[in-house]
Design a binder for these strands. Structure first.
Lengths: 209, 209
DNA sequence: TTTTTTCTGTTGCATATGCAACAATTTTGT
DNA sequence: ACAAAATTGTTGCATATGCAACAGAAAAAA
């Protein structure tokens, strides 16, 4: 996703560091982690894709976040007293790096060069994450299903630099990601097709406006 | 808001730095900045409160973000090609610190102690901001008006450590913040009162469940 | 391969939410 | 202190959206 992110270099730096870090592999649909207790865990996607999921009391599934290579996630980014049980699931086979924020900042203040660079690296990763979250909020604050769909398609279109793109989700998951009802979304998609705004072949969408 | 944020110390560090920074004062309702061109601007609220606002083509106002002391905002946190015109307005008389991300990282790589500490500071500010954004996404992904209201009240309740708290918004703005219709929200609030979930005196809310 | 599960596409119906409009109240500005 | 502007509180009505259900297609598992 981020062309400037040198995964190998980043891992190498971590491995040579004084911090305890872990790299784990996950098969598709495996649970990567849960946000239950506050361990100040930070995770970085090294390969694959993972989703942050919430099920509410009505059984509604919501894809709170969708993370790809170089994205950061983890329960350190959530307040301690959250009422929700959130968990992260691998959408594809994925490789994830784990460490803790505490380890990074509190236990290792030796002013070593590594830390300086790591902190800087982390700042950039955090910045990227803030940008992603702001994009997500832009989507979610749209008032209608149509606006949400078009806003999301616009993002995907800009990312692919084309008017055509392939959805990273199934339509079922797309609805859970946009926090809307699936059948209502399908209905709106059909309207958008009928009105000539988009074309749709399987999970490939083309904007025609 | 953040008890660990030492505003005076932070400003002092900035002022003694090699970066060009600015501190400006704004009266209530004055425009603090707009997100139009990409200047990589980062802003920090030193006092007061500011709102990030979007008006859509239907005239709907949305309060995308609400920032208080120690919160960071700025168009560096938004992708370059956003379609929206966003602007930041002072909700109260406010003091805001301005600098640019580029200045910080590109032009001043002298490895001076200030930068190391500033970067670390910034990382913590970014982390706090990510937590805020995640809370906001939690709100916005709730499916019903009732759930949104109760989730937001729960946050305010936890912040005040009491079952009672005063809304930081007018009811008009609260609706714009939750991205829902004001009259529908008022209706739901009345239902919540009638069903004994909350009490309401002006802008003071008490949870009774 | 065959079987099982998940996903897609669609529709009728119920209802939560948005919209418009207005009076009463409160706040702001002069 | 007064006038103007904004907010609150409320309601009737329209409709966008959610819900339930199902058949066919596609994907995954056996």
């Amino acid at each position: 996703m981020d062309a400037n992110f040198d995964k190998e270099l980043f891992i190498e730096k971590f491995k040579n560091s004084c911090n305890r870090i872990q790299i784990k592999n996950f098969k598709k649909n495996e649970i990567v982690t849960t946000y239950i207790e506050k361990r100040n865990q930070i995770c970085i996607v090294l390969s694959g894709e993972v989703d942050l999921i919430r099920y509410d009391s009505n059984g509604n599934k919501t894809i709170i976040g969708h993370f790809v290579v170089s994205d950061v996630f983890g329960e350190v980014f959530y307040p301690a007293n959250t009422n929700n049980e959130l968990f992260v699931i691998a959408r594809k086979n994925s490789e994830v790096l784990f460490f803790t924020y505490d380890t990074l900042f509190n236990k290792c203040r030796r002013n070593c060069d590594f830390h300086k660079e790591l902190t800087s690296n982390l700042t950039e990763l955090f910045l990227d994450q803030i940008i992603n979250l702001n994009l997500r909020i832009e989507l979610l604050t749209k008032r209608t299903i149509r606006e949400k769909i078009l806003a999301y398609f616009d993002i995907l279109s800009k990312r692919s630099i084309r008017r055509s793109f392939t959805l990273p989700f199934s339509y079922t998951d797309l609805a859970d990601f946009l926090s809307i009802d699936r059948s209502a979304m399908m209905r709106e998609l059909k309207l958008l097709i009928d009105e000539g705004f988009i074309k749709k072949h399987g999970s490939k969408i083309t904007l025609t406006f």
